[in-house]
Amino acid sequence: MSSKKTADLSPSLVAVKGQATPVPPASPPRLPASAPLNFKVSVEFRRRFRQRAAGADLKLNELLREALDAWEQKRGLT
């Protein structure tokens, strides 16, 4: 008597030779929606930045985007 266990396979999981479903081509890899931005600032700058974001009810990245937008607009880059 064999002690090997066999898996119960559902008929829908078993392909019959010549009737297998083709695998669709792989889609190109997507770029991430966001990426980390790492740099060092002084402790005082970090405190001020966090205070301004909290005071305006903004996330830190929202304040950073607004600051860059304002900087570009001031220099006529937009």
Rank of each mutant, 00 (worst) to 15 (best):
A54Q: 08
F49W: 11
D69T: 02
A26Q: 12
A33K: 10
R50L: 08
A20H: 08
L13R: 14
V23A: 10
L13H: 14
L37Y: 07
R52A: 10
R30E: 11
S10C: 15
L37I: 03
S12V: 06
F45S: 03
L58C: 02
P29L: 04
P29W: 04
R46T: 02
R46M: 04
R65F: 01
R65W: 01
T78E: 11
D69H: 04
G55L: 09
W71V: 03
L77G: 03
A70K: 06
L13E: 15
P11W: 08
K40S: 03
N38D: 09
A56C: 05
V16F: 08
R65D: 06
N61K: 02
S34N: 06
A20I: 04
S10W: 09
L31S: 04
Q73R: 15
P25G: 05
S42K: 05
R47K: 12
P36R: 06
A26P: 04
P22R: 08
V41H: 03
E62I: 00
W71N: 12
A35S: 10
A54G: 05
S2L: 12
P24C: 07
S2A: 14
D57P: 00
R50H: 11
L68K: 01
A26I: 12
S34W: 01
F39R: 04
F49S: 02
P25A: 10
E44C: 00
K59I: 01
L9W: 15
A7N: 13
R47P: 00
V14H: 06
P28D: 09
S42V: 01
Q51K: 06
S34T: 15
Q19D: 14
A15D: 14
L63T: 04
A15P: 11
K4C: 07
S42T: 14
T21F: 06
L13S: 15
G18W: 12
A70C: 02
D57A: 14
G76I: 01
V43W: 00
K40F: 11
